[in-house]
Design a protein around this nucleic acid. Structure first.
Lengths: 63, 63
DNA sequence: TTCATATGTAAAGCTTGCTTTACATCATCG
DNA sequence: CGATGATGTAAAGCAAGCTTTACATATGAA
């Protein structure tokens, strides 16, 4: 599962830790998603997309 | 996590077993999502939304 | 150089998503 | 009536998502 999370986060000038706190997850979770260690849960994917005023399919896409 | 999966599936006149096979998951997985036993993975949520020519946020929504 | 910030990664442990197998109920059809 | 299909549910087991703690490395500021 690829995503544009890193780009969106960079544009927003947020660190992984910043975003993690804003979303209520651990920094490692954000890092794992960005480095493609695993996919977020549906709940978290929706929260992420919503935070960046986007939608799930735009932020995340199957390889 | 609520969803309009049951409605969409009914409109398409598919049984849980039919849809499961089309999506490559078990019937119990479809049933569990419809009865809110658990949320689908992000991958599966995207596949479901795509199958019904919709998008994740339209098919699934946080309680 | 020293310190702080940002990122990557690892291990252990808990929870959740999904599987297979199995059984129960209900409706419909012959 | 008996058979079939659709749905609900349960248990056991494996895989994946997420946590906390911890350490390593790089970069930039003082």
């Amino acid at each position: 599962m690829k995503s544009s999370l890193r780009d969106l986060r960079a544009k927003a000038e947020l660190s992984q830790a910043d975003l993690a706190e804003l979303l209520g997850v651990s920094r490692q979770t954000i890092n794992a998603i960005e480095t493609e260690k695993y996919s977020p849960s549906l709940e978290l994917a929706i929260r992420i997309a919503r935070y960046f005023e986007s939608n799930v399919e735009e932020v995340f896409h199957v390889d």
